[in-house]
Amino acid sequence: MQDLSSYPLELTGPDVPMVRFMNVRKTYGDFVVLDDLNLDVAAGEMVTVIGPSGSGKTTVLRMLMTLETINGGVIYVDGKPLTHMPKNGVLVPADAKYLRKARSSIGMCFQHFNLFPHMTALENCMEGPVQVLGLSKKEARERAEELLSMVGMIEKKDQHPARLSGGQQQRVAIARALAMRPKVMLFDEVTSALDPEVIGEVTNVIKDLVTKHNLTMLMVTHQMGFARDISDRICFFFGGKIEEQNTPEELFTNPQKERTQQFLSAVKAAD
């Protein structure tokens, strides 16, 4: 067990990042998924994580959503610890109550949408605001309708997920996450389960978010063209570490590391 007393109780100063992974380690038994990860994401920044499968890229998002516990290091969100809480002047692993409060600034969209099948598109988007944020049904409905319009799903608001295509479900899922007004949005391979012809309708919504809203975003994707178009920075993960990170322009045209070059040419060959 490492010494937590060396970690600050909160981040201060002029350049506090929206998200900071500090020496984060994640293992499953003997298998090391992420080893000593250090990564900052600035407010309003769009960072895309790429890499071969098993490189730990999805785990990065899942740890940030608190779906996975970490085995070392600390994650900070908006200057405050997420995975830990201050107690008697030092950080200790966060309890359920603290986690629930801390994760409220984070939203996530999943590869398989995970919409609530027994609720309509509108009800899916109202659930969190009503149950968690305590909005009235009327307020929640207005917010949900506004977001469903934004993702182009207002006409299908009374449909259950089973009646929607994959692309439509994913757009509803994005609206559902946004309804919680997160500061950080996580997109975990949101186009991987979609038919090729509907990928565009989802990526367009995300592009819209990037240009029109000041959200901090972390994305895992296999759509290299899409990642290149919209990201401020690309992180290439390999073997549980960030092998290389740079602006999309630099990373795609002038990769420095051999493994990055190999990965990019393999992806290109597959396209």
Binding site: R100, N114, L115, F116, E127, G128, Q131, R176, A177
Partner: peptide, 19 residues
């Protein structure tokens, strides 16, 4: 995935079960 979606919109465990 349903549990994870509940966590992502921050429902409490009791709300996740009930709703």
């Amino acid at each position: 995935g349903q549990w994870e979606a509940c966590t992502a919109i921050n429902l409490s465990p009791a709300q996740a079960y009930r709703r």
